[in-house]
Nucleic acid binder design. Structure first.
Lengths: 242, 242
DNA sequence: GACAGCATACCGACCAGTCGGTATGCTGTG
DNA sequence: CACAGCATACCGACTGGTCGGTATGCTGTC
C-alpha cells in the first residue's frame, strides 16, 4: 500500500478496525464497560494486535477521539448546509442537518465525545480534554455563521455567538441522553425542533427584556410580568438535579 | 427507634450511607467505574454490610435511583418556584431555580440519572427504565404549568406541553455534559439562560411559520425567508454526531 | 535479516459476589 | 424476670472469574 503522509490519517487498516469497533462499543456501553477483549473480538483481531497499535486503553480512547474528529469534521465540512447565502439560513440548515442524522439505532447517532466525557471527566483528564476540544471545536465552526447572522440582522443581544453555538451542542447532547433513556430518536428530534424555533425567533423577533437575577443589564422596568425573583432559598446545599 | 412506615423512606442509616456514597461516586465516575469496595470504603462499611442491604450492584443502582427520586422530588415539590400565580411565571421560576442550583463542584450539581443512563441504556434495561421514569416523571411535573400558560396566553402551537417540558430536561442534561467537559457550571448556566429566553419568547411573541421538512402543517407561503430546505443529502449512512 | 503485523500464552491486580461467623436486640412464653 | 428463639446488622476472608497489560514467537515482505 502506498504511504501518503496524509495528516495522521490512513495509518493501518487493522488499526482503523480497532478504532471503529471501539467507537461503536463505547457509544453503546460507555468507556469503562468496554473491554479491550471486546474491542479485539469485534474487530476480529487479537490482543497482541491491539497493544501493537495502542499503548493502553486510554491511548486508544484518545486515538478514537482524534479519528472521530477527522470523520465528523469532514462530514460536516462537506455537508450541504453551508450553501445558503444567508448566514441565518446556514445556521438553520445546520440544525436541520443535525436533525436528519437522528435516525436508526441509538448507538449509531449518539456522540462518542458526550458519552465518554461523562465517565472520564474526573478520572481521565486527557480524555476529558479531548472531548472538550472536540465539542468546543465543532461548536466553533458555527460561530462565524451565527456572528454573520447577528450582523446582518443587526442584533446586539446580551448573548454571544459563541454561547449560542455551544447551546446548540448542549441541546444535541441532551437530546442524545433523552434518546438513550427513551430508546429512540423521536424525543431527540423534538428537542432539535425546539432549538430550531428558538434560533429562528432569536433573529426575527424582538428579544425579551432581561429580568434575571445576576444579569449584567439589570434592565429598567421593561416588560417584566411580575418582578418576582425566585431567589433560590436552597436550604439543601447538595445540588440535586435531573 | 420508632418505626414509622413512611412510604419506603427511613429504612436504615447504614443503607442510606451506602446509597449516598454510591450516588456521589457514580456522579463523579459513572456506574461501571464505581466499585462496590469504593462505595463501602466511602460509606465506612464493609462489603458484608453492602450485600446485606443490596442483592447486587445493579440492585443498589435501582435503590439509588429511587432514593434520588424521593430526594429531588421533595426538593422540587417544596421549592418556591410554585408560588407565582401566573403559570408562565412558575415555569420561568422553575428555570431560574434550576440555574441557581448550578454551582459548586461538577459532581455536586449534575444528574445521577443522566449519568447512569448513558452507560446502562443497552446493558441494564432495569436501570435504563428507572432513569427514563425519573426524568420523564420530573418533566411531567412541569406539564401542568406549561399547559396552563398555553391556555392563558391563548397559544395553539405545533408543539405540546409535554414536548416543551422534556426539552427543558434536554437542555439541562446537555448542560451537565458541557459542564463536565469544561469543568465548571458556567457553560451550563449560559445554556439555561438560552432556555429561559426561548420559553419567554414562545409565550410572548408570535411564533415563526413552520418551514421544516417532514412537518405536519406544511404551511402556506408565510414568512419563509428563503424557501430552501436543507434536504440532507447524507451520503454517509453512519450517523455522526457531536 | 530486520522489522511491521499479528497471534498465543500468560501474569498479576482487581472485583463482584459468597460464606461463615459474631454481636445485638426484639418477642413471646413460663 | 429469665431465657429460648429468632431476626437484623455487620464483619472480613475468600473465591472464581475478569481485565489491562506483557512476553514471546511466528510470518510475510522489503
Amino acid at each position: 500500500m502506498l504511504w501518503f503522509p496524509m495528516a495522521s490519517a490512513a495509518q493501518s487498516e487493522s488499526r482503523d478496525k480497532l478504532l471503529d469497533a471501539a467507537t461503536h462499543l463505547i457509544r453503546a456501553r460507555g468507556y469503562t464497560a468496554t473491554r479491550v477483549d471486546d474491542i479485539c473480538a469485534s474487530a476480529g483481531l487479537s490482543k497482541g494486535s491491539f497493544f501493537h497499535y495502542f499503548s493502553s486503553k486510554e491511548d486508544l480512547a484518545l486515538a478514537a477521539a482524534q479519528r472521530w474528529n477527522e470523520q465528523t469534521g469532514s462530514l460536516f465540512a462537506t455537508a450541504a448546509y453551508h450553501q445558503p447565502a444567508d448566514p441565518l439560513e446556514r445556521v438553520l440548515a445546520y440544525i436541520d442537518f443535525r436533525k436528519s442524522l437522528l435516525h436508526g439505532k441509538v448507538p449509531e447517532f449518539t456522540c462518542l465525545m458526550g458519552t465518554m466525557v461523562q465517565e472520564t471527566y474526573e478520572t481521565f483528564p486527557a480524555i476529558r480534554e479531548a472531548c472538550d476540544g472536540s465539542i468546543s471545536g465543532h461548536a466553533a465552526t458555527l460561530e462565524a455563521d451565527i456572528g454573520a447572522a447577528m450582523q446582518q440582522y443587526k442584533l446586539h443581544p446580551s448573548w454571544t455567538a459563541a454561547s449560542l453555538a455551544l447551546h446548540t451542542q448542549c441541546v444535541l447532547q441532551g437530546a442524545f441522553i433523552l434518546a438513550k433513556a427513551k430508546q429512540g430518536p423521536a424525543v431527540a428530534a423534538e428537542s432539535v425542533d425546539h432549538l430550531r424555533r428558538y434560533v429562528e425567533m432569536l433573529f426575527t423577533q424582538p428579544q425579551p427584556e432581561e429580568n434575571r437575577h445576576g444579569n449584567r443589564n439589570r434592565s429598567g422596568p421593561g416588560r417584566d410580568r411580575s418582578g418576582r425573583h425566585s431567589r433560590p432559598g436552597a436550604k439543601n446545599s447538595r445540588g440535586a438535579s435531573r
